[in-house]
Write a protein that binds this DNA or RNA. Structure first.
Lengths: 243, 243
DNA sequence: AAGGCAAAAAATGAATGCAAAATATCCCTA
DNA sequence: TAGGGATATTTTGCATTCATTTTTTGCCTT
């Protein structure tokens, strides 16, 4: 069966772009489209269908594809088109480790610049997350958890870091989601304790310590995510083969 | 005066590409062309001239420009073409910090996987570098220094990290070069001592410590580079204005 | 009926064409 | 002669077109 690409909203019209160029618009849309898992892993990215879907010609679409390939979201095979990049277990380990390194860096830098108010804000998020934890509200927990990590990255006051972090987050977003929703309650408990340690180090502005804690925290997440992914793929290998 | 783009070698012919696609070839060439400083900072990237220079049409060139823009090497202004990205002092600080974080991560990961042989190799490089230090051979020192840091990144066994490191290195390459050549002898001595500490931590596979040392080492480099850049720009502001 | 080859169809990669926007040039006025 | 505005030129963004390559289809052979 050919992979069918569903409709994805209204074609882009010139009136849509206020400041962002059509290219940027296309890029954002296409990136989201891929990241959200609308095309199965390993499957072809059909130029013509996407052109029709977006209401544009092949030129700007292909420009966007090149960028997405540079970002690592898709891969371009010479004369054989674009495919959604299939991430092996090893690839995911690597990406998680880089994320861990970036967040570790964010923590280190945050300690140099973060204000008491920002720390208080993160503390509030922490307690909010604790509530979701007690209620076993996975969705809420996950959302606030993301929020906390993004707050730390923001506190690092480094736009290049923020962009790199966002880029890597996009690449593993799908796996991260499913892994978080499948997370064992036990791992939740560990994660909560780790978050407490993070806050504690942040309050003391202990950069090196915070870097260590954050790295280990992400490493633990990595283990859970990979474990979950392996189990999922073993149970349903077709989903990873691009059918 | 209009910025003149000098010739840059032979146009790309189809016979050149064995495996790499024309697009990849163009991308590599154009990236090098920009990174090597052939177009002044802030100056326009003239599509037509580059097309003639490379012997291609605008389509593949523009695809490459989009990618370079995504990499942060150039910026695309809507309807106003591409410009070589001008890095402010703050931008450079940020990029150096991200490099520091990535290398710090590399050290941490390297401690998990590095072999005794690899450490011995880095030690050899260290002694080689010491020789250049004693002879005040800036060029040799710089080359081996790069080599050492690349060896640590390689030992991390993480392709995603290696790629990200290479990308950021490209973005600050020009400044890094000039800063290194201008380095004071005193800073050389500090750097040598830091390198000894790096090796020592590596031998003990002390990941956290090595992460700290590498981060601080790069931070010191950052300070030297920024200081040098500021002095250079103050002495010759035109070079940064894109004349 | 299975396998293989050839032709047709489709998709890709790159060049060209065209309308809109930006830039440069020129002319006029004060 | 300096400034301002209209016009011409260039440049940009995207669509379209064309040549290759790949993939599919169909037919023939065994």
């Amino acid at each position: 069966m050919k992979s069918t690409i569903p409709e994805a909203g209204v074609p882009i019209t010139r009136s849509d772009r206020q400041e962002a160029s059509l290219h940027d618009e296309i890029l954002l849309r296409l990136r989201d489209y891929v990241v959200e898992g609308n095309i199965p892993e390993g499957a072809r990215v059909p130029e013509r269908q996407l052109c029709e879907m977006l209401g544009i010609s092949r030129t700007p679409l292909r420009e966007a594809l090149k960028v997405l390939a540079a970002e690592g979201l898709i891969e371009l095979l010479p004369n054989r088109g674009a495919r959604v990049r299939q991430l092996s277990e090893r690839h995911l380990e690597e990406l998680f480790d880089v994320m861990a390194g970036l967040e570790s860096l964010a923590g280190r830098l945050a300690c140099e610049a973060i204000t008491d108010e920002e720390i208080a804000g993160i503390e509030r998020l922490h307690y909010e997350m604790y509530g979701y934890y007690l209620n076993s509200d996975m969705h809420g927990y996950f959302r606030v958890n993301q929020n906390i990590h993004e707050s730390i990255v923001a506190a690092a006051r480094n736009e290049a870091l923020r962009a790199a972090y966002a880029s890597f987050a996009g690449r593993i977003r799908r796996v991260r989601y499913s892994a978080n929703f499948a997370r064992k309650r036990q791992r939740w408990g560990e994660a909560m304790r780790e978050h407490e340690a993070i806050l504690e180090a942040l309050r003391r502005r202990a950069g090196s310590e915070l870097a260590d804690i954050l790295f280990q925290h992400l490493r633990n997440k990595r283990a859970a995510a990979i474990e979950h992914l392996t189990a999922t793929r073993d149970a349903n290998p077709a989903s990873a083969a691009g059918g």
